[in-house]
Structures are given as C-alpha cells and as structure tokens.
Design a protein around this nucleic acid. Structure first.
Lengths: 103, 103
DNA sequence: ACTCAAACTCTACATATATCGCTAATGACG
DNA sequence: CGTCATTAGCGATATATGTAGAGTTTGAGT
C-alpha cells in the first residue's frame, strides 16, 4: 500500500453528506448537486466505497418512463464508522498519529 | 386550418428512415443519428406522428441498469401510406394539387 | 530530497429521452 | 402583398448514470 484510501476532500465530502442522514437512501445525482462533484468524480467514488463495503447500493425504477433508473446508496455500519472518523477529526482529543487514520 | 402538417424536410426525413424497414421497431436515439436531427426536433416530431396515429410506440426496458428505457417506434398502416406519399412524389404522375397533400 | 506506484480527480464523451421558450416557415384570406 | 394563426424547428437545459484517458496527489521506501 503506497497511499491511504478514501481520504480525499471529495470522498470526505460525500461521506459527510451521507452521514447527515445515516439511514437515508441517497441518489448519486442528488449527491452530485449537494457536493458539487461532477459525475466523472462522483460515480467512481461511490463505486469504490461500495466495493469496499462502506456503502450498500440498490437500483430504483424511474417514476416516469424515459428517465434512467436511479442508483440509491446508503452507509453501512462500517461506512458510518468511516464517515465519523473522517468527518469529525476529534478536535481536543489525543494527538492523532498519521497511521491511525488508515484502516 | 392554415397550414398542412407533416410536410417539413425533417418530418419527411424521419418518415423515409422508417419506411426503409417498415415493420422494424426503431429507437429515437438511432433515428436521431441516422437523420442528423437533434433531440429537441426529433422527439416532439415522433410524438406528434404518434399522436396522429402514424406511428405506434412502445417502451423497452434497458439492457443495463442505469441507462434510460428506450422508446421504440414503428409505422402504422396510415404511417406507411403517409411515408410513401411524402417519400415518393411520383415524378411522372398526374400533377399534384396542393390540397391533395393535406390529410 | 527523490523516486515510484497506487489512488484518485477531472474533462470530455456516451447513453437515451424529454421539456421550454423563442424563432421561423407556411399558407389561407383580405 | 401583407397580416396572422398554426405548425414546426432549434438551441439550451434537465434527468440520471456511466466510461476513458490523461493528469495529479499522496505517502512509503530509499
């Protein structure tokens, strides 16, 4: 391993958005508008987190025909833990060693 | 009525494309590439012809999730007749009165 | 400090359909 | 010929997700 995964500003932003309502299913399109990320950044990011077990993903049928189906995402238990770790750097806590941050 | 419907170059182009294989179901996206028409021109046109009974339309589920469903179109009997009328101006035939062109 | 490779971002493009608002073409009628 | 209503075209934008390839960032090891 030459680099810690899931620590980028963009990833942290998505985790924070998901952590705001940890049990809600969120759509990629809505997350992209909320975080300002473009599809080429966001969707690979969501797929990575999903592959790593931090998100669960589900397809939803479109309400209107002619619109694409929607991919819904939600944090798993591990995802909530990761998001808390990244989103709340525990300001007054014990000095955080760099290696602590990596899973 | 102040103007004859379905006589524009664009409409005739679509009718000609459909007439090439009169019983095949064709997708809007493919027709747009074949005829060079942009979506803002093509889809309203297809919907008009469909509303007027010249086309039958059917939704097809996408092969991959995440892609939009496809709207398939095919000429009806009336559609074939209209397309022949428009596509083959019968060069040596009797002089075509303007009113003949209107349905 | 320097190199190296994995992890990641970003622009552009592709898939498909549809609506909105302004403009242009058409042809009947005066 | 000019006016006027109807019909249609067209660019822009929206809905949603995804891939490709080039480039950047990061941190471990030297």
């Amino acid at each position: 391993m030459t680099r810690a995964p899931n620590i980028s500003r963009q990833t942290v932003g998505v985790l924070a958005a998901l952590l705001a309502q940890p049990q809600a299913w969120r759509y990629g399109y809505d997350l992209s508008k909320e975080t300002g990320l473009k599809s080429g950044t966001l969707y690979p990011l969501l797929m990575r987190l999903s592959d790593q077990g931090y998100l669960e993903a589900e397809w939803r049928q479109p309400l209107q025909p002619g619109r694409p189906a929607r991919h819904a995402y939600r944090l798993t238990g591990a995802g909530v833990a990761l998001a808390r770790q990244r989103a709340e750097p525990t300001p007054g806590a014990a000095p955080l060693q760099p290696s602590t941050v990596r899973p």
